[in-house]
Amino acid sequence: MNCIEIEDISVSFGDFDALQKVSLQIESGDVLMLAGPNGAGKSTLLHILLGLVLPDSGKIKVDGKETTIDNAYKKNVAYLPEAVNFSDSLSAYSVLKFFARVRGSDHSKIDETLRQVGLAKAKHRKVHTYSCGMRQRLGLGVLIMADSPLLVLDEPTTGLDSEGISLLFEMLQQRRTNKQLTLFATHDFGLLERRASKMCIIQNGQIKAIDTPDNLRSAVNLPTHIRFQATAKLQQFSELIDQLSSTKITLENDQLLVETPRHNLAAVMSAWRDFGTDAPEFRIMEPELIDVYEELLER
């Protein structure tokens, strides 16, 4: 499985149009992050890829061929639902054993996986005694053992502590390196931004934007902030900066704060090279992804 294409998928639940002619493509090595307000259609889109929701119209293609979500397709997919849960009577070890049997995975990896997700000491405890974060870690363990070509995650950070999040980061990075396909829906996009190769923003069942986080930043053109140490040639520097469109410069204590559109960044830095060499320290602050997201939603 190297590529999945969703073409013109529409789904409605009664009068509510959950998705309207949605098309997107996930290619080898893509880690696609779905973002959008509650009820935008993120989970519905994930569920379509899992066969949990049947679309009213549209196609799903795997490696260019139209496909139905049958057992052969599902063998290549692993899923972590939001706030994952498992059968109350099972221990973590039994859960991994069950999924190993189901997936035909190697049973000898169970202990290693439990160590990896930090549940080795609690492996014989019943899952119903686990906290939400521990269940989520166990869910990650199931995914690690499955190592499926397509991974679908719904709010994967739910309940995870910093160690759990590091584990998730590592897994996403590994999948990117291995050229596997990953798709996840999240509200924590600031946290997961660096692990995603693309971001897709959904609103009212339609895709508002899809691109790399960097390109989305460029597209909305929100101001970038650059903090410099105050320079002796402040006057000259300010004059030069003032000539740039939509640029503001303020002096805060001993620091200069320049607010400018992204496309002016090169010109600002060039001015700094001319007049600020006596104070070489600076810090560029790109617009937060949440601001980019909100800006795109408002359009």
């Binding site: 599902k74 899923y79 994952v84």
Partner: peptide
């Protein structure tokens, strides 16, 4: 109710 059904149905089983 336990939220285990979506995970089960995502497995290769109709």
């Amino acid at each position: 109710e336990r939220n285990t059904l979506p995970l089960l149905l995502s497995l290769p089983i109709s």
